[in-house]
C-alpha cells in the first residue's frame, strides 16, 4: 500500500476508529492520541500490508492494541493508587480524574439514560467492552471481530453475550430498566 492509498484509508476510517477509541478510553484527548498512534504504526508497516486482510481488520487490530495497552496502564496505576494513595504523581491523578467514569467526564451526555448507559458500560470487562464497541460502531460481524482480536468465533459470541448480560444487570442495579 503506497502513501497516497494509506492517506485515503485514513480519511475513510478516522471517524469510526475515533468512535471506538472514545468508548474504550472514555475521553476525547486520549482517543485521538490512540487513533494517531495506531495509524502511525500501520503507516510504518504499510509496505507489509497483506491484501488477504480487510483494511478494516488491519486498522482495528492496531487501534485495539493501542487502546488495550492504555487500559493496562490505567489498571496498574489504579492498583498502585489503591495501595498507596500518594504513589502516583499529581499529573497522573489529574489524568485519571479527567478520564472520569467511562467517558462521562468529557463526552457531554444528552440524557440521564445516556449517562446510565455509559456507567453501565464501565462495568463490562475490557475484552467484552472492546467487542461491543467494535460491533456497535461499525456493525462488524463475528468473524471479523474474531480476526481483529485473534480469538475464536465462539469466544466472540460468548464475550458479546456476557458483555450484554453484565450491561443489563448494571442498568437494573442502577435503577434503570435494562429489559428488552
Amino acid at each position: 500500500m503506497d502513501e497516497r492509498a494509506f492517506t485515503r484509508v485514513t480519511e475513510e476510517y478516522a471517524r469510526r476508529l475515533y468512535a471506538v477509541a472514545v468508548r474504550m478510553l472514555g475521553n476525547r484527548a486520549d482517543a485521538e492520541d490512540a487513533v494517531q498512534r495506531a495509524l502511525l504504526k500501520c503507516f510504518a508497516a504499510r509496505a507489509s500490508y497483506s491484501p488477504r486482510w480487510a483494511v478494516s481488520t488491519w486498522l482495528y487490530r492496531s487501534l485495539t492494541n493501542v487502546c488495550i495497552d492504555e487500559l493496562r496502564r490505567r489498571r496498574v496505576r489504579d492498583e498502585t493508587t489503591a495501595v498507596d494513595p500518594e504513589a502516583a504523581s499529581p499529573a497522573v491523578h489529574a489524568r485519571a480524574t479527567r478520564r472520569g467514569v467511562g467517558g462521562a467526564a468529557s463526552t457531554p451526555p444528552t440524557s440521564t439514560d445516556r449517562i446510565d448507559l455509559v456507567r453501565a458500560l464501565d462495568a463490562v470487562p475490557r475484552e467484552a467492552r472492546l467487542l461491543l464497541a467494535l460491533h456497535y460502531v461499525d456493525g462488524l460481524g463475528y468473524s471479523e471481530l474474531a480476526a481483529i482480536r485473534g480469538i475464536s468465533v465462539n469466544t466472540v459470541k460468548s464475550q458479546l453475550a456476557r458483555g450484554k448480560a453484565i450491561l443489563k444487570q448494571a442498568l437494573r442495579a442502577g435503577g434503570h430498566d435494562g429489559s428488552d
Binding site: 475515533y18 468512535a19 464497541a133 442498568l171
Partner: peptide
C-alpha cells in the same frame, strides 16, 4: 439495549 448501544457509539468526530 442494541438500539441504545448503537446510539451511544455514534460519537461525533
Amino acid at each position: 439495549t442494541d438500539a441504545r448501544l448503537r446510539e451511544l457509539f455514534a460519537v461525533e468526530t
